[in-house]
Design a protein around this nucleic acid. Structure first.
Lengths: 335, 335
DNA sequence: TTGTAGGCGTTATCAA
DNA sequence: TTGATAACGCCTACAA
């Protein structure tokens, strides 16, 4: 493996290095005869162009960076999958930046943009201060997914989480529930506040009293759903329904309820959030709000690639909607 | 944002470009006074070094590529997570190559190595022809995870799947079962053959008859487990236990059994494979073989980074073991 | 300790 | 259509 460069190919094919380069960038500009010679030389030498040199020369990498809070979370993974698909189709590579929910990591990854290591960035559910993001981004191609930065200069595609919890809550209200509990995700996430707001909105809109002792803060995970439900079900006055900020918490709550001899949905109707795989498989199957992961990924990537190409984007802010998936845990019966 | 280069910084700090470069690569070689001046200039100009140029000059990218069959599968994701962690700690970036189980994509990604776009590759559960892999890899730093290429030149870290199904099967045998069924993954995966072999080995070792009508081929997913179990449970003669090649198939089988009025583990003891999150949460909780995802990721990455540094590796073949996780579905009772 | 200058392997401009 | 040559921005002998 003595490294073989374009020079070697050129020499072997008895043409100039410029001609070899053209065979890659603009083959039509090369005579068929020379093209053939070059191809043969490439073949014989087993030559592969050095992408580093090309990138430097072009000041472009054909790589986009995905900054993602946690690669183990299936919701994020689904978004990532569709991003990767679109990127691949367009001949782009995907660099992975798992922040593990750390602010420093998020910031650090963002700097790769200024270092020219990537042509653009998709920022999934950022937690960094918006103005700091804008400062670092500084006109580079970036698309944000999942944060409602209405006032931002940065193109954003997001889903309306506030509306979603509203829909979920109203579904339970329509089923006759009035004493409804809410398990929130961590309240240091903007997202959690939006969702909680949706819950409150729905209750108020229907003239129902919000019992503050029915509102709990968890961490999105199964265990916290279990523990919160155990605590809640020991209250003197019990809710008849629960909206959970994540499917895992919902499933945890269902399991806790069962451990305490309650039957879901009879004694406690439950709606989750995310539509993870488990939601359709668990027992009883979980009604939930499905987020449009595929679309979030696809649309944001298309926007980013357009930005990179320097095209102007018609819509700089795309709003998608979650979908209510009705299964068994909410107690809805088809007529 | 007129692009600012090292030249600009040098001019502003009234030093040479070499001095600026040294501030990054070897600050001790620069006098404190000049260092200070350079820092100030960097700050004022908001300079970020161009990583493309650096990479070309160094012929190194500080990037590793992970070729992964399917990013949506949580088992792979867990491996990826620990890879990313180790890489990040060592100041390496991770480029993501989701093949979607396509051979062409696997091959295509592998060529990024020759194009110098990455310093090394971790190949998760490759399906490409081993000799083709070796040909493309051609002495570049590569580590394979999960494929028992005993005869390969390429360092490998893998877990002993054959032994695992053996252990799972023996666990059921020890619990008194003799009529044991097996749900295999797709048989065009080497992996599936290894696992099936383990099952057969255990049966033979304990002098038990293998009923070929109890061996089914599925696709690893929930639905196939459900369907296979439904088919199996309509046989005239029924098995009393089941080893499934994946947790999803196991859970599907449990659900099918319940739909047919069977009780797990009383009527059918079940052991799965993978220890996905759902395994601990489902009802009854699933006994299963846990694969050492973390270790697979960590060890392979450490090996790869060592290879990149040109260090010699003591062990070129690392064998890890899966762990039997006993829960409710196998019917084991603690004494 | 500092500066000068050559080169990493391409691409792109220009002239032939 | 082709070839010579100057970038791209940085790193690193080597010399001062």
């Amino acid at each position: 493996m003595p490294k073989v460069t374009m020079d070697d190919v050129a020499r072997k094919a008895s043409v100039s290095i410029a001609t070899v380069s053209r065979v890659y960038t603009d083959p039509d500009k090369v005579s068929p005869k020379n093209r053939e010679k070059v191809f043969r030389a490439i073949e014989e030498l087993n030559y592969q162009p050095n992408a580093l040199a090309r990138n430097l020369r072009r000041l472009q990498t054909n790589t986009i960076l995905i900054i993602i809070p946690n690669i183990v979370n299936t919701f994020f993974t689904f978004i990532l999958k569709s991003i990767q698909d679109v990127a691949f189709e367009n001949n782009y590579q995907v660099l992975l930046g798992d922040t593990d929910r750390s602010l420093e990591r998020e910031e650090q990854y963002l700097y790769l943009l200024q270092q020219k290591l990537v042509d653009g960035v998709i920022l999934l559910f950022p937690r960094l201060n918006p103005s700091l993001i804008e400062e670092i981004v500084d006109n580079h191609p970036v698309v944000i997914v999942g944060q409602p930065l209405f006032d931002s200069k940065i193109p954003t595609v997001t889903n309306d989480t506030c509306l979603s919890t509203q829909i979920a809550t109203e579904h339970l209200i329509k089923l006759g529930h009035s004493k409804i509990a809410y398990f929130s995700g961590p309240l240091n996430f903007l997202l959690s506040h939006d969702r909680l707001k949706g819950f409150r909105l729905a209750m108020v809109k229907h003239g129902l009293k919000i019992d503050e002792s029915f509102i709990f803060e968890g961490d999105f995970y199964f265990q916290s759903g279990y523990e919160l439900a155990a605590k809640m079900l020991s209250l003197p006055d019990l809710p008849t329904a629960l909206v959970a900020g994540s499917d895992e918490m919902a499933i945890g709550a269902i399991k806790a309820a069962r451990a305490l001899g309650k039957v879901v949905p009879r004694d406690l109707a439950v709606i989750g959030f995310d539509d993870i795989k488990m939601a359709s498989i668990c027992e009883p199957s979980l009604s939930t709000m499905a987020q449009p992961a595929d679309e979030l990924g696809r649309i944001s990537t298309e926007m980013l690639l357009a930005l990179i190409k320097g095209e102007t984007i018609k819509e700089r802010f795309v709003l998608l909607y979650d979908k209510l998936v009705i299964r068994e845990s909410c107690g809805f019966k088809k007529v």
